[in-house]
Computed example of a mutant assay.
Amino acid sequence: MSKIFTLIFLVFLAFLFPVHAQVSLGLRGGYTLSATQIKNSQGYKSNSIGTSSQLKNLHADLIINVPVYKNLHFQPLVRYITKGAYLRPLPDKSGLLVESANQLKLHYLEVPMNVVFKIPVSIGKIVLGAGPYVAYGLGGSYDLDLLYNGTVLSTESHDVKFNYKDRGIAPGVELSRFDAGANVALGFEFNNLMVLGASLSRGYTNLDRTSSAKITNSYFSLSLGILLNREDY
């Protein structure tokens, strides 16, 4: 997976060089609602976007606009984002101590690679887009509750160690560093260079390398920023 990520990044850079004079850049940041879906063989299933399990955090983007043909553009982002969720407690086992992960935070450098269509209007452009993304895990943390008969006795914070045995969010769960999926985006570019954006992202890569569970990411984001230049000027 690391070789695929490197290859995509190199192709992406090579694509930019011939059209560097037309490329425009921008900076953007905003608010993220994320969820990590977990389903294991015991029937445990975490909640998703739109429920109380959502993790609220921030993200930051470098926007790159590359004209392709008329109103069609290639618009990749370089995004720093925190994904994760508040996880439901594991099923109670009466009379036994149970370890259950609570708050999960995973920090990623993500590259959404969207194809967008820009619709000119009087005050700017409506931006509609979609495409795949790849993400590289930089690190993370989770809170581990010790439960007895449904009561939390203690909580400890642990670092997520990608690709390190038994240091995922539960014993026996090994988290992969790489994530991939797809997203859809809606935005607006004002004539004064301000930009607004919203996106919905869904991961399709199982983050559990042991296959003892299915773990995927999803998030909804709202962004505000500014273009440093315009490719159509």
Rank of each mutant, 00 (worst) to 15 (best):
L62H: 00
K70Q: 15
H59W: 03
N57P: 02
Q103F: 07
N65V: 00
L87F: 06
S100G: 04
K70V: 03
I123F: 15
A85S: 15
V116K: 05
N114C: 09
I63V: 14
Q54C: 05
N114R: 04
F74E: 07
V127S: 11
D61P: 00
H73S: 10
K83G: 13
L97P: 08
A101R: 12
D61R: 03
A60L: 07
L55H: 05
N102A: 14
I64D: 00
S100F: 06
Y69K: 15
V78C: 04
I123V: 09
L72C: 10
L87E: 06
L109V: 15
K56C: 03
V111N: 01
L96A: 14
V115I: 13
H73P: 01
K105Q: 15
A85K: 02
I64K: 01
T82Y: 08
L128G: 03
K105G: 02
F74H: 06
L97H: 14
M113S: 09
Q103E: 13
L90E: 12
L97Y: 15
V111H: 04
P112K: 05
V127I: 13
R88T: 15
P120F: 07
L109T: 13
H73N: 06
Y86S: 15
Y69T: 08
I123N: 10
S94V: 06
D92S: 14
P91R: 09
F74P: 08
V111I: 13
D92P: 09
V111E: 00
K83C: 10
L62R: 03
I119N: 09
N65S: 09
P120V: 06
L109K: 01
S94R: 05
N57F: 03
E110S: 09
M113I: 10
G95W: 11
N114D: 11
G129D: 07
I64M: 07
P67M: 00
L77Y: 05
F117V: 04
P112A: 04
F117W: 13
V116W: 00
L90A: 10
K105M: 12
Q54G: 03
L77E: 11
N65E: 10
N65T: 04
R79F: 01
P76E: 10
I81P: 04
A130W: 05
L128C: 08
E99D: 13
A85F: 00
K93T: 13
V98P: 01
V115R: 02
S94A: 09
K105Y: 12
V68P: 04
T82N: 14
L109N: 05
Q54T: 06
A60K: 04
H73V: 08
L109D: 04
L62M: 06
I81R: 02
N71K: 09
V68M: 06
S100A: 06
L104W: 05
Y108N: 11
A60P: 03
L87D: 07
V127F: 12
L77T: 06
N102P: 01
L109C: 11
